[in-house]
Design a protein around this nucleic acid. Structure first.
Length: 229
DNA sequence: AATGCGCGCAACCGCGTAGAC
DNA sequence: CGTCTACGCGGTTGCGCGCAT
């Protein structure tokens, strides 16, 4: 009974060191992308998603593992207040950190520490709870505009499709207001108490990182979604 | 010393979006 | 223009470890 037609082709579970080595070698040789073919060509019996996740979260160069610094923690909290559960965006501002790690860190360390912290699975910002349902997810993405390096759609592009959709307009307006308020407080915060360079140099939030951090906000504002704060 | 419980982390799953055909 | 495929993101689950009883 071993030769079954429905044998599981895709391996699951924890990655073994040898699997890591295979994947790392393969990606370093052939580059990222085409994850669906990586498993076949490299000999790994893993799904493309699994390979991509493993590379992105653990094998990629410059990955920083281990405890978060106070600055990183503070950054996560403030970014989450601004962005909600936009883990990839938050992680994008933390050099060497991945969205998965940020997400886990939030769920396990930060969420419970906050006054209104919720339990696992309902980790959204209370202020934005209604906005974090799957139903509204795509709406929010369009309204906020994703600053993905892949060059995603402009938030403006979808506005033309909103004819008669007052609900979406209201939502966009509400989001805009929220951003304006929080951006203002963010600006005040960094003006009054700017980040200082970390002792070990792992995290610097002084000049350029600050600008890099703000570029998404500027992008958002510049596309006409926000007011002038 | 053994058992149970809780916590943290790694990985999987489903959905949405973008690009190719 | 419509359909298909691959990629990326966020939510959720399961496993392993450490601590308390």
């Amino acid at each position: 009974m071993e030769s079954k037609e429905a044998k599981p082709k895709v391996k699951k579970g924890l990655w073994k060191p040898e699997e890591d080595l295979i994947l790392k070698t393969y990606v370093e040789t052939h580059g990222e992308g085409n994850w669906s073919t990586v498993s076949k060509k490299s000999g790994l019996m893993r799904g493309g998603k699994s390979c991509r996740l493993r590379w992105k979260n653990y094998l990629r160069p410059n990955i920083k593992r281990g405890g978060m610094s106070q600055e990183e923690e503070d950054m996560i909290i403030r970014m989450h207040k601004l962005l909600g559960n936009r883990w990839s965006l938050i992680a994008g501002r933390l050099p060497g950190r991945t969205d998965n790690e940020v997400k886990n860190y939030w769920n396990t360390h930060l969420n419970k520490r906050l006054p209104s912290g919720k339990r696992k699975g309902t980790d959204s910002n209370p202020d934005q709870d209604d906005n974090n349902t799957k139903e509204n997810k795509s709406k929010r993405l369009r309204a906020l505009g994703d600053s993905q390096p892949t060059g995603n759609t402009s938030p403006i592009g979808s506005t033309e499709e909103l004819e008669g959709k007052d609900q979406e307009k209201e939502e966009r307006s509400a989001v805009s207001d929220l951003w304006a308020q929080d951006a203002q407080s963010m600006m005040n915060y960094y003006i009054e108490s700017p980040m200082v360079p970390d002792n070990n140099g792992t995290f610097v939030f002084d000049d350029e990182p600050f600008l890099a951090y703000w570029d998404s906000f500027v992008l958002f504002e510049s596309v006409g979604c926000g007011g002038d704060w």
